[in-house]
Amino acid sequence: MSDFFNANLVLVQSTLTGLLLALSIQVPLRMGVFSFAGAGSYGIGAYATGILVLRYEMDALPAIALTALGTAVIGLLLGALISRLGGLYLAMATVAFDLIISVIAINGGELTGASTGLFGIITDFTTGQMFVLTVAVLALVAMSEVGRLGRRVDTVRDDPELAASMGINVRRYRLAAFVVSGALGGLAGGMNVLVRSTVGPLDIGFGLIVLALTMIIVGGSRSWKGALIGAVIFTWLPDLLTVIGEWQELVYGVIVAVAAIFLPRGIYGVLQDGTRWVQRVRRDRRAAARGGPVVDADGGLRPQEDEAAVLVAQAAEQPVRELDQLSGRTQGAP
């Protein structure tokens, strides 16, 4: 086990940062906020941690904490600016944000190391610490998927108007999505730069968005478990695919495209549908044993049939018009 661990240290580390990066985009998506700002936060986080360690000689953990706090605040400011935009417009505004961060990195002169970036970022940060941090964050994210908070997040995503009338402050949730996304992205970037000891402009940018989306699309967009599945697959797949040889990039692309088109809720969504089906079968079997309702009590009329039935009934009983109903019934009433 530990041999395996040591031999694949880099892959384990990449899985953890990949997971956090994916979560930084998945969390807002789960709230119906189509934001890719997590990739920008990753870039900011990587450079900020690097600069704090190199120029201010900070220790790893304080540097990371400060970084995550900073990217959370930046997320809040960004959210305050653009969270009112809808759908694609919001998505593109955040893509622009991510790319601006890349341009700033190139133009940061001595501070960011321009096109060569930063290197020699050496601290006592261990993979163990990285693991603990990631698990802690994962637990927090998991808590937002169950119970009251989970239901509220679902409502905000699926039907913001309904959410508002159920007492949910939709704007606050959307802002929270930006803040959490910022913190997660910053953390991912910060941890990555600490274990890799370098960061350059090529490490951040549009490719990060594609990577994170890839993990979410294939793994699943509705749960941290999906992000975990995606992060594991896409960190380890290229290694396994060397068997397939030189066409690994193509295989990778086909997997993503197929998942994006045919499995909108990813592998985890398929697993979930499976468990739901089993639950349903069990439930109906139990109900049948008790003699309770198996199918819907009123025969499972679908809406269209139902409306048609109402119309037909009306036409048959009240051939003339609603007034007949109005006056007739009224006169009949005591």
Binding site: I209, W247, E249, L250
Partner: peptide, 24 residues
């Protein structure tokens, strides 16, 4: 709304294939 977003994501996904071929 969901179609719009999935088209964007799907486009990003599909775009990987020609890119992979050309890069290769």
């Amino acid at each position: 709304r969901t179609a719009e977003m999935q088209i964007l994501i799907g486009g990003i996904g599909v775009a990987i294939i020609p890119l992979a071929i050309a890069q290769h």
